[in-house]
Structures are given as C-alpha cells and as structure tokens.
Nucleic acid binder design. Structure first.
Lengths: 162, 162
DNA sequence: TTTCTTGCAAAGAGTTTGCAGCTTC
DNA sequence: GAAGCTGCAAACTCTTTGCAAGAAA
C-alpha cells in the first residue's frame, strides 16, 4: 500500500524536487504531529532528535517548499510566529481553528461550514475565492469547564463563610 | 457634537491614559486611512508628515495601546507584517477581509455573515467565541475584469495571426 | 560534470525594551 | 516632584540569504 510519505515524495518529484533525508525527516515530524501547530523552531527541535546534523535554514526551506506544494499551510495566530499545518489529503479547503485565549490551545475544525458564506461573497463582491483563513478566538470547552468548577468552589466557600 | 477623536480620548482617560499630541496624531492618521490596512511603518511615515519628531517606538506603543482598548484590531495577512485596522464604532465583531493574490489589494466586508457558523461552532464544539478572523484569498473583481479583457485581446491577436 | 541541496554564519526585517530627558498634573 | 510619556539606540526574535562544501543524477 502506498503511504502518505510516498505520495508526498511523488508530489516532490512531479515538481522536480528530491525527497532528501532532511526533507523526509521533516515531513515525518509533521505527520507525527498532525494535531499540533508547530512553528519552524518547534519542527527544527523535533527533527534534530532524529537527524541532529540538520540546520534550521533547511527546515525553513523545506517548510517553504511544502507550503508551495500545498502539503502544508502556513498560518499565523497573531503571536508573531508562522505555524505549519499539514493539509488534510484531498481537502478542498483549509480547515478552521479555535484558539483559546485562556490556555492557548489550538483545536481544529475540519468541517467546511463556509459554503454558504463563500457563495455570498463570490456573488456579491465578485471575488473569486481561492483560499480562506478562519480562526475563532475564545474560551475552549476545557477552560470553560474549569471556570465553572471554580465558580462552584467559590459558591461553596461563600456558603461556608456564612 | 462629540467627534470620534473625543470618544477615543474618553476611552483613553477611562483607562487612565492621556491623549498626548503624538497619540492624537497617530489616531488622526488612522481615521484618515480607515479604508487602508496600514503597517506600523506606514503609520509612522504618515504621522511623521504632521509630527516629524515622532519616533517609531512611540507609534508601536500607541498602536499597542489602541489595540488593548479595542480601538484598532491587529491583523496579519501572512506577509510577516502586522497591520492595524480601525474597528467600526460599536461593531460587535471584527469585519472580514478579501485579499487579492494578484494585486495585493485588501477589501473589507462589514457584514457579519458568520452568525450561523458561530452558532454551530459554539454549540457543537462548546467553544465560547470572543472574536474571529476571517480572510478570503483570491482574485478581486478588478483583476478578474482585467484578466477577461486580456483574454479577449488574446483572442483578437489569435484572429489576426490566422 | 552539472545540478540540486545542505549547514553555517551573516544579514535582514519587524518589533520591543532600557533609559535619560521631558511633560503634565 | 511623582508619574506618565517620548525619542533614540540597542537588543531581540523570527526568517531569509550567500556561499562553500557535499550529495545525487
């Protein structure tokens, strides 16, 4: 069976690039951290564990390359660092993100949800959409629950104080 | 009648900040370029025209301050520069953007359009939305039209060649 | 051989910070 | 005169680039 890395290799070859050991190590790190939103530095440190001789510049160049080939999407959550997110295979659109302003966690939404909105934008603004970025900032379910617990605790303490 | 700058002044005072001449000049530049998406450097150069002695650091500090007070929103379109966008007065949500991948133009969408999507996200992911960022990347109406014209021109040239 | 790729170090770009001096209340 | 604010320069962070050496076709 053809693995994901084989398919990426083919994509590289199709664009006349090679899958060098450094590039392979980088891709493997991305595959192993598909849920995360790693910065170039993050990727570099993880790749270094497998290929200690790799340089940060190579990681940047590889990520840039993968971005060109649309294997990864480069995204910025406003903290001044670019993050690299593996695109779902065959996904028509880039997925969305939920960024928690309490704990910093980043969750993904794979569902598109934007079909209707995009239809409106394309027709009303006569804008041909090629890609999108949608990020919600707010409080994730985990922090939400934690706050409710603390609220109850507070209530209990108040009761004790009475 | 109370002007927009007066209201911003009040907001500053409410948070115990002053509207110094430098801050006022910066705010005025933002008001005069409400349609644009200026970087800190852009703002700096424009403010310099009115207040040549101002320093870049002051502009950064002022923009940071205005961002805190939610007078402006800081946004990043992926070109490695932060841009500062005046928030519509009383707007519940940050507006959306259309970034043209041909000419780089950035247009704004003031309509919310995301109500339904946000309702789904809040209930299905149990995520309390506080803010959002939505940007579409694609071809703006102007470039679109230009391309069609060129297409026609191309067709004509083909006819001549025959 | 020729072309592509790499690691290193240096450079670049954007942003933040330390600090002495200046305002303002 | 205490507190806040400013301009300047230096520092810092993230990213890109030049280049000589190395690997692959």
């Amino acid at each position: 069976m053809e693995s994901r890395i084989d398919r990426i290799k083919k994509q590289l070859h199709a664009a006349s690039y090679k899958l060098t050991p450094q590039r392979e190590a980088t891709v493997r790190v991305l595959l192993e951290h598909e849920e995360d939103h790693l910065s170039a530095e993050d990727v570099y440190l993880l790749v270094k564990e497998k290929a200690p001789e790799i340089g940060l510049a190579t990681v940047y160049r590889t990520l840039e390359l993968l971005n060109e080939l649309k294997v990864v999407d480069k995204i910025n959550f406003g903290d001044g660092v670019s993050r690299y997110d593996l695109r779902q295979e065959g996904a028509a659109h880039f997925h969305h993100h939920l960024v928690c302003i309490e704990c910093g966690a980043v969750d993904e939404i794979q569902e598109d949800l934007l079909d209707d909105v995009e239809a409106i934008v394309e027709s009303r603004w006569n804008f041909k959409i090629k890609d999108h970025r949608l990020t919600f900032h707010g409080i994730c379910s985990r922090c939400h629950m934690k706050q409710e617990e603390e609220g109850e605790k507070g209530d209990l303490e108040k009761q004790h104080a009475e």
